[in-house]
Amino acid sequence: MTKNRLEQRRTVLKNIISTSTLALVAASGLLLPQRLLAHWPMDAFNAQTIEDALMALLGHADVVNDSVVQFKVGSPPSYAVNGASVPVEIRSTLEEIERIIVLVEKNPNPLAMSLDFTAVVNLPFKSMIKINEDSLVIAVISAGGKLYKTSRMVEVDIGGCG
């Protein structure tokens, strides 16, 4: 009797140990790919609003409206015939720029691009973006731990996200 019960106890213990190790392995295995994927901030790019995108990217969304950022969208400025390629140009007198983020308010996913700067990179930065409809285009510059924001209203004749 006692022997039987002891054996039972042993198997139960064994089972507990093996399931718990399995669970640990599974947990660590599940965590790993997430960390690997983190180099492309999916949450931020899939966010539907500007606040969500900034939150996911930077962890906070306290931005200072500032004119130290010169920002041009479209040519002629504030107007684009074809929303599929709208030129953007960002200039600034700020120093120690860590990051520049370009957002288009009315796009299905507002975050267009995020640039990680090092000390040797200098502005102006130019690129082309897609704009779906008439919308505010926002440039956020992160420098010295602060966020500076400038926005421009852009009119688009043909939407560029179709």
Binding site: P41, L111, D116, T118, V121, M128
Partner: peptide, 28 residues
Amino acid sequence: WRNDDQVLTIKCGTATARNPYFSFQLLG
């Protein structure tokens, strides 16, 4: 990269135009 130093990282979403174009300056 410039020589062996990584100088700039750009993360793009779908809102970057077709045939992406970028222009920037490197000090020195």
